[in-house]
Every structure is written in structure tokens, then in C-alpha cells.
Design a protein around this nucleic acid. Sequence first.
DNA 1: CGAGTGACCGCAA
DNA 2: ATTGCGGCCACTC
Length: 114
Amino acid sequence: MSKVMEGAIHTRFVARVEELVSTIPKLKVMTYGQIAAMCGSPRAARIVGGIAHFGDPNLPWQRVVSKQGGLASGYPGGKSGHKQVLESEGFIVNDDFKIDIGNHLWQPNQQELL
DNA sequence: CGAGTGACCGCAA
DNA sequence: ATTGCGGCCACTC
């Protein structure tokens, strides 16, 4: 993977992604593609994944999932670890390591709409 | 400039 | 429904 995130280098894109992730409230999740789109690159979901792996560990990366609600294989402890973290936050994780994003999906825009 | 990387996404069979 | 494959894009060397 590009060593962008490994070196914890803050590029424009990375900064936006991290900032966005930091705004995800509890019991809410965002998809990689969604995040990428909001950061200006709808097709850069993979990049977001890379940032998730090597980005700021203080951020709630556990609230970032795939579009199908699938957990992250690269999460510390694997999907199992990811699952436990989510469950500890109150999420309901299936045996398939998936969550119901339809029920938890967070859309920052709705913040303004309120 | 060209090639390689990946916690993804979407389409085809 | 599941599996496989290719494209994708920000970034580095």
C-alpha cells in the first residue's frame, strides 16, 4: 500500500477523511465509498481504507464499514476484533461479520438539515 | 513519467 | 444468492 498513511503523513485528502471520520457519532457508521465521495473522490474508497489502516488510531475507525455493512479484515484483531468493538458500542453484528447499515448509516448532511 | 499498493466497489457468469 | 475479476484513485519511489 502507499506509504502515505504508514508515515502518518497528512495530505489534504487524508486530513479530510480523518476529520470526517472524527465526526461520526456513536451508533452511526459510514461507508468507505461514502467518505471518499465526501472528500472529493467518489472512487477512492480504497484510499480511505488505507488511511483507516494507518491513520490516527484515536479516531473511530470501527464506525467505518464497507457498503454492505461488512467489517474490516485489516482491523486490529481482524473482523472478530472489529466485531467486538462494535458490539461494545451497542451495534448488532451478524455472524457474517456484518451490521445493518440501513439502520446505522450516518449522513453528515442531515446535520444541516436538522 | 511509469509502476506498484490496497480495512473498496460494481458488474458478469 | 455466491465467486471472480478488473477498475479505481491518492500517493510513493
